[in-house]
Amino acid sequence: MSAIEIKDLSFIYSKGTPYQKQALKDVDLSVEEGTVLGVVGATGSGKSTLIQHLNGLIRIQDKKRGSVVVNGLDASKRKERARLRFEVGMVFQYPEYQLFEDTVAKDVAFGPKNMKLSKEEIDLRVRRALELVGLNYEGFAERSPFDLSGGEKRRVAIAGVIAMQPKVLVLDEPVAGLDPVGRRELLDLIGRLRREVSPTVLIVSHNMDDIASVADRVIALKDGEIVADGTPKQIFGDRALVESIGLEVPPAKRVADMLEERGIQLPPQIIDMDELEEALAALLKQKEGIADEAQTAEATCAEEGDMRSQDDSCAVCRKTPDEEGEDV
């Protein structure tokens, strides 16, 4: 089942003025329910304009041509658009700046209250949302959101959105400004939210490594158009493509490319550090003469284009495992 159907969507800011800027151009996008979709692109590529169409924050400019339908709700129709506000949960950049209530529980309850739910249901949802984002209800409910750490504030802000139990969750730069541990925790949280609350998740990020680690599918925007659409491997494994859209390949891909330039052949399309680790461990095992049936010779050293100098010889392809005698 398709969660998001966008057809022929264009959008022009300051239309008819000298500052006119086309932010989206004939965008077609269909997202299956259950997908974690990474949305990448340089600043100004149209990412924010696109996601704000999903819950009607930005109205469709040309309704005759363009359409946005999310879970069967048509964003061009006023009544359905109102329901979209609850169907699509938006977590903007630095959402903690939008906290406003004097207790955590009240802040998280704001969305469900607007849905006119019963008090019991609201309490239940607040409790569940806080627990889901890893904040103990008893410990946090009555605290002021302004006395929390940056990472905790961000979780409260996310809890406020998921308390509405949106079917589609949109996270704009969810880990920006978090310390590395907070970053990891939040990325892990995304998997849990998908399983338990919002089956479809969109993540907008500049960090290719983060997208590579959580997304099933990636679309890349450039100047308002979708210029690439595929698995993280297909997108991030293609250096020319990634650089043409003003982004950088993930570090694992960069290292793999540098090693290949030095004549070390690795399996194709390595985009994350775990894959790189396995490939390197396999190479090192071969070189150091440790028999390991599980790690077959998928990685071999290229004969050509090898930039080794002097007497160095690549032990992997020349099969001289005891050369340096570093037994492990």
């Binding site: 540098m258 070390i264 461990a281 190479l283 090192l284 070189k287 080794r308 010889s313």
Partner: peptide
């Protein structure tokens, strides 16, 4: 990789990692 027995020394950046691996493999 060090934990798996392939000691590469202290690595700070991508260049050092590439150098370290090349040294081990050649």
């Amino acid at each position: 990789l060090s934990e798996r027995g392939f000691e590469l020394g202290a690595i700070l950046d991508e260049n050092e990692l590439v150098e370290g691996i090349c040294r081990r493999l050649k």
